[in-house]
Design a protein around this nucleic acid. Structure first.
Lengths: 205, 205
DNA sequence: TGTACATCAGTGAACGCGCGTTCACTGATGTAC
DNA sequence: TGTACATCAGTGAACGCGCGTTCACTGATGTAC
Protein backbone atom coordinates (compact mmCIF):
# COMPACT_ATOMS: atom_id res chain seq x y z
CA UNK A 1 0.00 0.00 0.00
CA UNK A 2 1.61 3.26 -1.05
CA UNK A 3 1.46 6.30 1.17
CA UNK A 4 -1.24 8.05 -0.79
CA UNK A 5 -3.53 5.06 -0.53
CA UNK A 6 -2.60 4.68 3.11
CA UNK A 7 -3.45 8.31 3.83
CA UNK A 8 -6.71 7.83 2.04
CA UNK A 9 -7.59 4.74 4.00
CA UNK A 10 -6.58 6.40 7.23
CA UNK A 11 -8.91 9.18 6.33
CA UNK A 12 -11.62 6.71 5.46
CA UNK A 13 -11.44 4.47 8.46
CA UNK A 14 -11.46 7.27 10.96
CA UNK A 15 -14.85 7.39 12.56
CA UNK A 16 -14.19 10.22 14.93
CA UNK A 17 -12.61 13.09 13.11
CA UNK A 18 -10.91 14.62 16.11
CA UNK A 19 -10.73 18.17 14.91
CA UNK A 20 -13.96 18.53 12.96
CA UNK A 21 -14.91 21.94 14.28
CA UNK A 22 -11.65 23.53 13.20
CA UNK A 23 -11.65 21.57 9.95
CA UNK A 24 -15.12 22.85 9.07
CA UNK A 25 -14.02 26.43 9.59
CA UNK A 26 -10.95 25.83 7.44
CA UNK A 27 -13.10 24.31 4.71
CA UNK A 28 -15.42 27.27 4.93
CA UNK A 29 -12.53 29.70 4.48
CA UNK A 30 -11.26 27.79 1.46
CA UNK A 31 -14.62 27.40 -0.25
CA UNK A 32 -15.44 31.00 0.55
CA UNK A 33 -12.40 32.35 -1.25
CA UNK A 34 -12.61 29.87 -4.08
CA UNK A 35 -16.33 29.90 -4.85
CA UNK A 36 -17.92 32.69 -2.86
CA UNK A 37 -20.34 32.91 -0.03
CA UNK A 38 -23.33 31.47 -1.87
CA UNK A 39 -21.52 28.13 -2.10
CA UNK A 40 -21.26 27.77 1.64
CA UNK A 41 -23.87 25.39 2.96
CA UNK A 42 -23.80 22.91 5.78
CA UNK A 43 -23.87 20.15 3.19
CA UNK A 44 -21.00 21.38 1.03
CA UNK A 45 -18.88 22.04 4.09
CA UNK A 46 -19.56 18.57 5.47
CA UNK A 47 -18.74 16.97 2.13
CA UNK A 48 -15.58 19.06 1.74
CA UNK A 49 -14.45 17.93 5.16
CA UNK A 50 -15.19 14.28 4.36
CA UNK A 51 -18.06 13.86 6.74
CA UNK A 52 -21.82 13.31 6.58
CA UNK A 53 -24.09 16.27 6.17
CA UNK A 54 -25.46 16.01 9.68
CA UNK A 55 -22.08 15.80 11.38
CA UNK A 56 -21.51 19.58 11.62
CA UNK A 57 -24.49 19.80 13.91
CA UNK A 58 -22.43 18.14 16.61
CA UNK A 59 -20.30 21.29 16.69
CA UNK A 60 -22.58 24.09 15.59
CA UNK A 61 -26.14 24.65 16.65
CA UNK A 62 -27.05 25.92 13.21
CA UNK A 63 -25.65 27.61 10.12
CA UNK A 64 -25.61 31.04 11.75
CA UNK A 65 -23.37 29.81 14.51
CA UNK A 66 -20.94 28.41 11.96
CA UNK A 67 -20.90 31.59 9.89
CA UNK A 68 -20.33 33.60 13.05
CA UNK A 69 -17.34 31.41 13.89
CA UNK A 70 -15.89 31.85 10.40
CA UNK A 71 -16.35 35.60 10.56
CA UNK A 72 -14.82 35.74 14.01
CA UNK A 73 -11.75 33.98 12.70
CA UNK A 74 -11.60 36.66 10.03
CA UNK A 75 -11.82 39.51 12.52
CA UNK A 76 -9.09 37.94 14.63
CA UNK A 77 -6.77 37.63 11.67
CA UNK A 78 -7.51 41.17 10.57
CA UNK A 79 -6.72 42.59 14.01
CA UNK A 80 -3.56 40.53 14.12
CA UNK A 81 -2.38 41.92 10.78
CA UNK A 82 -3.09 45.44 11.92
CA UNK A 83 -1.14 45.02 15.12
CA UNK A 84 1.76 43.34 13.34
CA UNK A 85 2.14 46.07 10.76
CA UNK A 86 1.70 49.01 13.10
CA UNK A 87 4.07 47.98 15.87
CA UNK A 88 7.52 49.44 15.59
CA UNK A 89 6.23 52.55 13.83
CA UNK A 90 6.82 55.90 15.44
CA UNK A 91 4.48 58.81 15.05
CA UNK A 92 0.72 58.89 14.88
CA UNK A 93 0.47 59.40 11.16
CA UNK A 94 2.80 56.52 10.34
CA UNK A 95 0.91 54.17 12.62
CA UNK A 96 -2.45 55.19 11.22
CA UNK A 97 -1.17 54.64 7.70
CA UNK A 98 0.05 51.18 8.65
CA UNK A 99 -3.22 50.28 10.33
CA UNK A 100 -5.18 51.35 7.30
CA UNK A 101 -2.76 49.64 4.96
CA UNK A 102 -3.16 46.39 6.85
CA UNK A 103 -6.93 46.76 6.74
CA UNK A 104 -7.04 47.29 3.00
CA UNK A 105 -4.48 44.62 2.24
CA UNK A 106 -6.22 42.04 4.40
CA UNK A 107 -9.48 42.72 2.60
CA UNK A 108 -7.91 42.53 -0.83
CA UNK A 109 -6.16 39.28 0.05
CA UNK A 110 -9.37 37.82 1.51
CA UNK A 111 -12.12 39.48 -0.49
CA UNK A 112 -14.88 37.02 0.13
CA UNK A 113 -14.04 36.64 3.80
CA UNK A 114 -14.09 40.39 4.21
CA UNK A 115 -17.43 40.56 2.45
CA UNK A 116 -18.78 37.88 4.76
CA UNK A 117 -17.51 39.76 7.81
CA UNK A 118 -19.56 42.78 6.77
CA UNK A 119 -22.44 41.01 5.08
CA UNK A 120 -26.04 41.69 6.01
CA UNK A 121 -26.42 38.01 6.95
CA UNK A 122 -23.84 38.54 9.66
CA UNK A 123 -25.10 41.98 10.58
CA UNK A 124 -28.47 40.39 11.28
CA UNK A 125 -26.89 38.23 13.97
CA UNK A 126 -27.13 39.70 17.36
CA UNK A 127 -26.44 37.42 20.33
CA UNK A 128 -22.93 36.45 19.37
CA UNK A 129 -21.12 38.55 21.97
CA UNK A 130 -17.60 37.30 21.24
CA UNK A 131 -18.13 38.07 17.57
CA UNK A 132 -19.17 41.62 18.35
CA UNK A 133 -16.16 42.06 20.59
CA UNK A 134 -13.68 40.73 18.07
CA UNK A 135 -15.28 42.84 15.35
CA UNK A 136 -14.72 45.96 17.43
CA UNK A 137 -10.99 45.40 17.63
CA UNK A 138 -10.00 47.38 14.54
CA UNK A 139 -11.91 50.41 15.79
CA UNK A 140 -10.14 50.13 19.13
CA UNK A 141 -6.74 49.98 17.49
CA UNK A 142 -7.34 53.18 15.54
CA UNK A 143 -8.80 54.90 18.56
CA UNK A 144 -5.85 53.91 20.73
CA UNK A 145 -3.32 55.39 18.33
CA UNK A 146 -5.24 58.64 17.90
CA UNK A 147 -5.62 59.18 21.62
CA UNK A 148 -1.82 59.39 21.85
CA UNK A 149 -1.62 62.63 19.88
CA UNK A 150 0.12 65.57 21.51
CA UNK A 151 -2.27 68.32 20.60
CA UNK A 152 -5.85 67.19 20.73
CA UNK A 153 -7.38 70.05 18.85
CA UNK A 154 -9.76 67.59 17.25
CA UNK A 155 -11.97 65.45 19.44
CA UNK A 156 -10.49 61.95 19.36
CA UNK A 157 -13.82 60.22 19.01
CA UNK A 158 -14.80 62.19 15.93
CA UNK A 159 -11.39 61.79 14.40
CA UNK A 160 -11.54 58.05 15.03
CA UNK A 161 -14.88 57.76 13.33
CA UNK A 162 -13.61 59.83 10.43
CA UNK A 163 -10.51 57.70 9.96
CA UNK A 164 -12.34 54.46 10.45
CA UNK A 165 -15.04 55.48 7.99
CA UNK A 166 -12.43 56.49 5.48
CA UNK A 167 -10.55 53.25 5.99
CA UNK A 168 -13.62 51.05 5.80
CA UNK A 169 -15.16 52.96 2.92
CA UNK A 170 -12.00 52.88 0.86
CA UNK A 171 -11.62 49.17 1.54
CA UNK A 172 -15.22 48.37 0.69
CA UNK A 173 -15.09 50.32 -2.54
CA UNK A 174 -11.85 48.63 -3.58
CA UNK A 175 -13.04 45.13 -2.68
CA UNK A 176 -16.33 45.68 -4.49
CA UNK A 177 -14.48 46.95 -7.57
CA UNK A 178 -15.92 50.45 -7.42
CA UNK A 179 -12.43 51.91 -7.24
CA UNK A 180 -9.68 50.55 -9.43
CA UNK A 181 -6.33 51.42 -7.93
CA UNK A 182 -4.56 51.24 -11.26
CA UNK A 183 -6.50 54.26 -12.47
CA UNK A 184 -4.83 56.44 -9.88
CA UNK A 185 -1.27 56.00 -10.88
CA UNK A 186 -0.41 54.86 -7.39
CA UNK A 187 2.21 52.14 -7.56
CA UNK A 188 0.83 50.26 -4.60
CA UNK A 189 -1.77 50.36 -1.87
CA UNK A 190 0.58 51.98 0.61
CA UNK A 191 1.39 54.90 -1.66
CA UNK A 192 -2.31 55.36 -2.29
CA UNK A 193 -3.12 55.38 1.40
CA UNK A 194 -0.29 57.75 2.23
CA UNK A 195 -1.75 60.10 -0.34
CA UNK A 196 -5.23 59.72 1.09
CA UNK A 197 -4.30 60.12 4.73
CA UNK A 198 -2.11 63.03 3.78
CA UNK A 199 -5.26 65.05 3.23
CA UNK A 200 -5.55 65.67 6.94
CA UNK A 201 -2.02 64.96 8.10
CA UNK A 202 -1.93 68.18 10.11
CA UNK A 203 -4.58 66.77 12.42
CA UNK A 204 -2.48 63.73 13.25
CA UNK A 205 0.41 65.29 15.13
CA UNK B 1 -71.44 47.95 -4.97
CA UNK B 2 -69.38 50.30 -2.82
CA UNK B 3 -66.20 51.81 -4.10
CA UNK B 4 -63.88 49.50 -2.18
CA UNK B 5 -65.55 46.42 -3.59
CA UNK B 6 -65.55 48.02 -7.01
CA UNK B 7 -61.85 48.73 -6.79
CA UNK B 8 -61.27 45.16 -5.70
CA UNK B 9 -63.31 43.72 -8.51
CA UNK B 10 -61.64 46.02 -11.00
CA UNK B 11 -58.36 44.70 -9.77
CA UNK B 12 -59.59 41.16 -10.02
CA UNK B 13 -61.10 41.26 -13.47
CA UNK B 14 -58.19 42.92 -15.10
CA UNK B 15 -56.35 40.40 -17.17
CA UNK B 16 -53.70 42.70 -18.52
CA UNK B 17 -52.19 44.64 -15.69
CA UNK B 18 -51.03 47.55 -17.78
CA UNK B 19 -48.18 48.70 -15.59
CA UNK B 20 -46.83 45.42 -14.26
CA UNK B 21 -43.17 46.24 -14.70
CA UNK B 22 -43.38 49.36 -12.62
CA UNK B 23 -45.71 47.70 -10.14
CA UNK B 24 -43.23 44.88 -9.59
CA UNK B 25 -40.45 47.34 -8.84
CA UNK B 26 -42.71 49.20 -6.42
CA UNK B 27 -43.63 45.94 -4.70
CA UNK B 28 -39.97 45.06 -4.48
CA UNK B 29 -39.16 48.38 -2.83
CA UNK B 30 -41.94 47.92 -0.30
CA UNK B 31 -41.13 44.31 0.56
CA UNK B 32 -37.46 45.17 0.68
CA UNK B 33 -37.92 47.82 3.32
CA UNK B 34 -40.54 45.90 5.24
CA UNK B 35 -39.05 42.41 5.29
CA UNK B 36 -35.54 42.62 3.93
CA UNK B 37 -33.77 41.38 0.87
CA UNK B 38 -34.08 37.67 1.63
CA UNK B 39 -37.85 37.97 1.24
CA UNK B 40 -37.59 39.13 -2.33
CA UNK B 41 -38.32 36.34 -4.74
CA UNK B 42 -40.02 36.27 -8.08
CA UNK B 43 -42.89 34.44 -6.45
CA UNK B 44 -43.45 36.80 -3.55
CA UNK B 45 -43.24 39.80 -5.84
CA UNK B 46 -45.75 38.31 -8.25
CA UNK B 47 -48.11 37.48 -5.41
CA UNK B 48 -47.73 40.94 -3.86
CA UNK B 49 -48.58 42.49 -7.20
CA UNK B 50 -51.62 40.26 -7.63
CA UNK B 51 -50.32 38.25 -10.53
CA UNK B 52 -49.19 34.70 -11.22
CA UNK B 53 -45.67 33.67 -10.42
CA UNK B 54 -44.68 33.36 -14.05
CA UNK B 55 -46.01 36.76 -15.06
CA UNK B 56 -42.88 38.74 -14.10
CA UNK B 57 -40.99 36.84 -16.77
CA UNK B 58 -42.85 38.83 -19.38
CA UNK B 59 -40.97 41.90 -18.17
CA UNK B 60 -37.71 40.63 -16.75
CA UNK B 61 -35.48 37.98 -18.25
CA UNK B 62 -34.61 36.66 -14.81
CA UNK B 63 -34.29 37.63 -11.17
CA UNK B 64 -30.98 39.40 -11.70
CA UNK B 65 -32.53 41.74 -14.23
CA UNK B 66 -35.29 42.61 -11.79
CA UNK B 67 -32.87 43.25 -8.94
CA UNK B 68 -30.77 45.40 -11.23
CA UNK B 69 -33.84 47.47 -12.09
CA UNK B 70 -34.72 47.91 -8.42
CA UNK B 71 -31.18 48.95 -7.58
CA UNK B 72 -31.08 51.35 -10.50
CA UNK B 73 -34.21 53.03 -9.19
CA UNK B 74 -32.40 53.38 -5.90
CA UNK B 75 -29.35 54.98 -7.47
CA UNK B 76 -31.52 57.39 -9.39
CA UNK B 77 -33.36 58.49 -6.27
CA UNK B 78 -30.09 58.83 -4.37
CA UNK B 79 -28.56 61.04 -7.04
CA UNK B 80 -31.73 63.11 -7.15
CA UNK B 81 -31.63 63.70 -3.40
CA UNK B 82 -28.00 64.71 -3.59
CA UNK B 83 -28.63 67.20 -6.35
CA UNK B 84 -31.69 68.61 -4.62
CA UNK B 85 -29.91 69.24 -1.36
CA UNK B 86 -26.70 70.62 -2.78
CA UNK B 87 -28.12 73.12 -5.25
CA UNK B 88 -28.38 76.63 -3.92
CA UNK B 89 -25.41 76.14 -1.61
CA UNK B 90 -22.41 78.38 -2.06
CA UNK B 91 -18.91 77.27 -1.32
CA UNK B 92 -17.25 73.93 -1.83
CA UNK B 93 -17.36 72.83 1.77
CA UNK B 94 -21.06 73.59 2.16
CA UNK B 95 -21.90 71.70 -1.00
CA UNK B 96 -19.80 68.71 -0.03
CA UNK B 97 -21.49 68.64 3.35
CA UNK B 98 -24.89 68.69 1.71
CA UNK B 99 -23.97 65.96 -0.75
CA UNK B 100 -22.74 63.76 2.06
CA UNK B 101 -25.72 64.58 4.20
CA UNK B 102 -28.08 63.56 1.44
CA UNK B 103 -26.15 60.33 0.93
CA UNK B 104 -26.31 59.36 4.59
CA UNK B 105 -29.91 60.40 5.01
CA UNK B 106 -31.03 58.53 1.93
CA UNK B 107 -29.34 55.39 3.20
CA UNK B 108 -30.84 55.72 6.67
CA UNK B 109 -34.30 56.29 5.23
CA UNK B 110 -33.92 53.34 2.86
CA UNK B 111 -31.63 50.96 4.69
CA UNK B 112 -32.50 47.78 2.91
CA UNK B 113 -32.52 49.44 -0.49
CA UNK B 114 -29.11 50.91 0.18
CA UNK B 115 -27.84 47.51 1.27
CA UNK B 116 -29.20 46.00 -1.92
CA UNK B 117 -27.52 48.68 -4.02
CA UNK B 118 -24.16 47.72 -2.56
CA UNK B 119 -24.79 44.02 -2.00
CA UNK B 120 -22.48 41.35 -3.34
CA UNK B 121 -25.37 39.92 -5.35
CA UNK B 122 -25.53 43.16 -7.26
CA UNK B 123 -21.77 43.60 -7.38
CA UNK B 124 -21.59 40.25 -9.12
CA UNK B 125 -23.68 41.61 -11.98
CA UNK B 126 -21.66 42.93 -14.81
CA UNK B 127 -23.43 43.56 -18.12
CA UNK B 128 -25.98 46.00 -16.85
CA UNK B 129 -24.44 49.13 -18.35
CA UNK B 130 -27.19 51.54 -17.35
CA UNK B 131 -26.96 50.32 -13.78
CA UNK B 132 -23.24 50.95 -13.70
CA UNK B 133 -23.74 54.42 -15.13
CA UNK B 134 -26.45 55.38 -12.67
CA UNK B 135 -24.39 53.97 -9.83
CA UNK B 136 -21.50 56.23 -10.78
CA UNK B 137 -23.57 59.38 -10.43
CA UNK B 138 -22.80 60.11 -6.78
CA UNK B 139 -19.09 59.90 -7.45
CA UNK B 140 -19.49 62.33 -10.34
CA UNK B 141 -21.39 64.79 -8.21
CA UNK B 142 -18.67 64.89 -5.57
CA UNK B 143 -15.96 65.10 -8.18
CA UNK B 144 -17.69 67.96 -9.97
CA UNK B 145 -17.94 70.06 -6.81
CA UNK B 146 -14.33 69.45 -5.85
CA UNK B 147 -12.99 70.39 -9.26
CA UNK B 148 -14.42 73.89 -8.70
CA UNK B 149 -11.99 74.69 -5.91
CA UNK B 150 -9.87 77.80 -6.28
CA UNK B 151 -6.57 76.46 -5.11
CA UNK B 152 -6.02 72.90 -6.19
CA UNK B 153 -3.16 72.08 -3.90
CA UNK B 154 -4.59 68.61 -3.51
CA UNK B 155 -5.12 66.49 -6.57
CA UNK B 156 -8.86 66.45 -7.24
CA UNK B 157 -9.01 62.77 -8.01
CA UNK B 158 -7.42 61.76 -4.74
CA UNK B 159 -9.52 64.19 -2.80
CA UNK B 160 -12.65 62.84 -4.47
CA UNK B 161 -11.76 59.30 -3.57
CA UNK B 162 -11.03 60.37 -0.02
CA UNK B 163 -14.34 62.16 0.39
CA UNK B 164 -16.31 59.47 -1.35
CA UNK B 165 -14.70 56.76 0.77
CA UNK B 166 -15.40 58.73 3.90
CA UNK B 167 -18.98 59.33 2.83
CA UNK B 168 -19.62 55.74 1.83
CA UNK B 169 -17.80 54.27 4.79
CA UNK B 170 -19.62 56.44 7.28
CA UNK B 171 -22.93 55.59 5.65
CA UNK B 172 -22.23 51.88 5.56
CA UNK B 173 -21.17 51.79 9.18
CA UNK B 174 -24.25 53.72 10.26
CA UNK B 175 -26.65 51.63 8.21
CA UNK B 176 -25.08 48.41 9.46
CA UNK B 177 -25.32 49.62 13.05
CA UNK B 178 -21.59 49.70 13.65
CA UNK B 179 -21.78 53.39 14.54
CA UNK B 180 -24.56 54.69 16.73
CA UNK B 181 -24.98 58.40 16.17
CA UNK B 182 -26.52 58.95 19.59
CA UNK B 183 -23.25 58.03 21.21
CA UNK B 184 -21.55 61.04 19.71
CA UNK B 185 -23.68 63.74 21.19
CA UNK B 186 -24.40 65.06 17.73
CA UNK B 187 -27.97 66.33 17.60
CA UNK B 188 -28.47 65.24 14.02
CA UNK B 189 -26.77 63.77 11.02
CA UNK B 190 -25.90 67.16 9.58
CA UNK B 191 -24.09 68.29 12.69
CA UNK B 192 -22.20 65.04 12.73
CA UNK B 193 -21.16 65.38 9.12
CA UNK B 194 -20.13 68.99 9.56
CA UNK B 195 -17.91 67.84 12.37
CA UNK B 196 -16.47 65.04 10.27
CA UNK B 197 -15.83 67.05 7.14
CA UNK B 198 -14.38 69.78 9.29
CA UNK B 199 -11.35 67.58 9.78
CA UNK B 200 -10.00 68.65 6.43
CA UNK B 201 -11.92 71.82 5.78
CA UNK B 202 -8.75 73.69 4.83
CA UNK B 203 -8.45 71.48 1.75
CA UNK B 204 -11.88 72.47 0.50
CA UNK B 205 -11.40 76.11 -0.31
C1' DT C 1 -3.40 -5.31 32.60
C1' DG C 2 -8.03 -6.32 31.23
C1' DT C 3 -12.96 -5.65 31.16
C1' DA C 4 -17.52 -3.07 31.43
C1' DC C 5 -19.64 0.84 30.51
C1' DA C 6 -20.98 5.69 29.64
C1' DT C 7 -20.35 9.21 26.38
C1' DC C 8 -21.03 11.42 22.33
C1' DA C 9 -19.12 12.30 17.43
C1' DG C 10 -20.49 10.90 13.19
C1' DT C 11 -23.98 8.02 10.07
C1' DG C 12 -27.56 7.54 6.72
C1' DA C 13 -32.02 8.31 5.56
C1' DA C 14 -35.66 11.24 5.45
C1' DC C 15 -38.68 15.59 6.17
C1' DG C 16 -40.62 19.69 4.11
C1' DC C 17 -39.77 23.88 1.92
C1' DG C 18 -39.34 27.75 -1.21
C1' DC C 19 -37.09 28.76 -4.97
C1' DG C 20 -36.07 29.96 -10.23
C1' DT C 21 -37.63 28.76 -14.32
C1' DT C 22 -40.23 26.47 -18.31
C1' DC C 23 -44.20 25.52 -21.07
C1' DA C 24 -48.38 25.09 -23.56
C1' DC C 25 -52.30 27.77 -22.99
C1' DT C 26 -55.87 31.65 -22.92
C1' DG C 27 -57.96 35.77 -23.41
C1' DA C 28 -57.62 40.97 -23.52
C1' DT C 29 -56.13 44.58 -26.51
C1' DG C 30 -55.15 47.43 -30.54
C1' DT C 31 -55.07 47.78 -35.44
C1' DA C 32 -56.10 47.19 -40.35
C1' DC C 33 -59.68 47.09 -43.33
C1' DT D 1 -68.90 51.88 -37.25
C1' DG D 2 -68.09 46.91 -37.14
C1' DT D 3 -65.38 42.77 -37.85
C1' DA D 4 -61.13 39.69 -38.30
C1' DC D 5 -56.93 38.95 -36.74
C1' DA D 6 -52.20 39.28 -34.86
C1' DT D 7 -49.90 40.17 -30.69
C1' DC D 8 -48.35 39.22 -26.40
C1' DA D 9 -49.28 39.84 -21.20
C1' DG D 10 -50.69 36.86 -17.87
C1' DT D 11 -52.30 31.82 -16.42
C1' DG D 12 -51.77 27.51 -14.04
C1' DA D 13 -49.39 23.54 -13.58
C1' DA D 14 -45.25 21.35 -13.32
C1' DC D 15 -39.96 20.50 -13.29
C1' DG D 16 -35.90 19.72 -10.55
C1' DC D 17 -32.98 21.39 -7.12
C1' DG D 18 -30.32 22.33 -3.01
C1' DC D 19 -31.10 23.61 1.23
C1' DG D 20 -31.45 23.45 6.72
C1' DT D 21 -32.60 20.43 9.95
C1' DT D 22 -34.24 16.15 12.54
C1' DC D 23 -33.89 11.52 14.14
C1' DA D 24 -32.93 6.95 15.59
C1' DC D 25 -28.78 4.62 15.12
C1' DT D 26 -23.79 2.95 15.51
C1' DG D 27 -19.37 2.49 16.79
C1' DA D 28 -14.95 4.70 18.48
C1' DT D 29 -12.96 6.45 22.63
C1' DG D 30 -11.69 7.23 27.42
C1' DT D 31 -12.34 6.02 32.15
C1' DA D 32 -13.44 3.56 36.39
C1' DC D 33 -12.63 -0.48 38.57
Amino acid sequence: MDSAAEAFSQKKIKYHHGELRGALIESALEILEREGMESISMRTLAKATGVTQAAPYSHFRDKDELLAAVAETGFQRLALKMVEEATGQTGVQARIEKLMGAYVRFAVANKKLFQLMFSRELAAMKNYPTLAMTAGKSYSLISAVLSKRDASSEDTRFLTVTIWSLCHGLTTLIVDDKIKLEQFGADDIDAFIRRTVGVFSDKLS
